[in-house]
Amino acid sequence: MSIPATAAFTATLGRELRIATRHKAEWLMPPLFFAIVVTLFALGAKPGDPQLAALAPSVLWVGALLAALLTLDRLFRGDLEDGWLEQVFVGPAPAMGMVLAKLLAHWLLSGLPLLLLAAPLALQLGFPSGAPLGWLLLGLLMGTPLLSVVGGFAAALTVALPRAGLLLPVLVLPLLAPVVIFGSGAARAAQAGLDPGGPIYFLAALLVLSLTLLPWAATAALRNAFD
């Protein structure tokens, strides 16, 4: 008997979203954190400094990255501790479907809110509205899933470790260097009136590459946690 991966995917996605509704406050923290980081950055600069707008893409990207990290540590941990993961791995459904659903749920719950918040925060930093803002958001639309996928892989690697909190960012951040470069690169190009198509295509390529390679690696890392 075998269960199609899509069944595992939809069942897990529904489960994750339902669990999230029981913890509303928890999912408000990453956007709040994001808003606070960006605001503090603006407060640290000279009032009305035109350089603030120039640095806005970088600030928004690093802020989004750190905010997404907040919830990563717990992505698989609860399920490992209460024995859910081992039941899924022993069961007939492909574990990869479960992993993909958890990654999508993480993006929906902690990536998407950042995306919605990014527009007002960018304007607050003096980033030009209109087309450049659109490119910034398009970059984030493709970049935030990358944060979830790469971060989810690192979370899976460290799930069995008692003190993963410090190790996790060290593993994730170097892997995300190209995402930050292309993401804020697209926004800066648009800001300067250049064509941001190049970095956007690279981001799309990175997203496709990560989506093919990393869910497999994350599943293997989770299986490793039972040893």
Binding site: L157, A160, F182, G185, L209, L213, D227
Partner: peptide, 29 residues
């Protein structure tokens, strides 16, 4: 030790894919 080695192996492989991408991205940047 076995679990450590397998976790490191996965990280090393993902990192190996990442290094050329980083180099290329910085060149472009």
């Amino acid at each position: 030790r076995r679990a450590a080695a397998r976790a490191c192996a996965l990280l090393a492989i993902v990192g190996a894919v990442n290094v050329p991408i980083v180099k290329y991205s910085v060149e472009w940047w």
